[in-house]
Simulated assay, not measured.
Amino acid sequence: MRALVVYCHPNPTSYTAAVRDRVIDRLEAVGAEIRLRDLYRDGFDPRLKPEELVSYADEACNTAGVAEHVADLRWCDTLIFIYPTWWYGLPAVLKGWLDRVLVPGVAFQMPDENGDIKPALTHITRLAVFTTCGASRWLTFLIGAPGRKTILRGVRLLCAKGCKTSFSAHYRMDSATPESLTAHLDRVGRAVDRWAVVPSHPEEATP
């Protein structure tokens, strides 16, 4: 298993960092290869620059500013996002990562006049989201949970046809208790354990 963990939080001592650490601990326990992209620590610029927009569909040069991130994405078979949900969606830095890294030729193929985009992340067989939400579960789903849908529907559409998905969230973070925080970390660990031990490639499976 080759896991790319895309982590997005400005506070290095946040609860989200504890979630990240639990995910990585469980991946290490099963011998997964791991690459971590800490977007705030690395100073990732989420802004799509004018020249990038001009060359957006040009596969010969549209990854020039994000080549290392693209290499990570092409390397992994498991893609994991860890972030806080703000305004029911993705933090701006993470949304910018999607804008700049998931470009034509990397994440999808541009459509012709009669079709739609075609997936190009078909090597990714596991897709997971670990997040925290200030709002309650019912309010988040009433609004439509746009952050969850962006990844587990939008990005998922670009992955392998049988791509497995996982989602774990701690809701009502503003009224969280030590007990609820601890219990959620345990849920996160169990969620990783459920799919991390399953081979990502058919040739790795035991006959």
Results as ranks from 00 to 15, higher is better:
118 K>W: 12
121 L>Q: 07
12 P>A: 10
73 L>N: 08
155 V>Q: 03
126 R>V: 01
186 D>K: 12
10 P>K: 11
58 D>E: 11
71 A>G: 06
25 D>S: 14
169 A>V: 13
166 S>V: 12
16 T>R: 01
122 T>I: 12
112 D>Q: 13
145 A>T: 01
49 K>N: 04
6 V>R: 01
175 S>K: 09
125 T>K: 00
31 G>T: 12
92 A>V: 09
139 L>A: 13
58 D>F: 03
112 D>L: 12
98 L>H: 09
200 S>W: 00
119 P>R: 13
45 D>W: 04
37 R>D: 02
27 L>N: 06
40 Y>Q: 02
181 L>S: 15
139 L>D: 07
63 T>S: 08
177 T>L: 13
160 A>F: 04
154 G>S: 07
158 L>Q: 12
178 P>S: 11
169 A>L: 02
100 R>D: 09
36 L>R: 02
3 A>T: 07
130 F>P: 07
175 S>L: 06
110 M>S: 15
98 L>D: 08
181 L>E: 14
120 A>V: 00
12 P>D: 14
111 P>W: 09
94 L>W: 00
106 V>P: 09
62 N>Y: 02
177 T>A: 13
194 R>T: 15
63 T>Q: 08
174 D>K: 06
20 R>F: 08
100 R>F: 04
193 D>L: 14
69 H>Q: 11
134 G>K: 05
122 T>G: 12
151 I>P: 06
43 G>Y: 01
22 R>M: 08
182 T>L: 15
155 V>S: 07
44 F>V: 03
104 P>V: 00
37 R>F: 04
136 S>M: 05
122 T>P: 06
37 R>P: 03
60 A>E: 09
174 D>F: 02
102 L>C: 15
109 Q>S: 15
132 T>E: 08
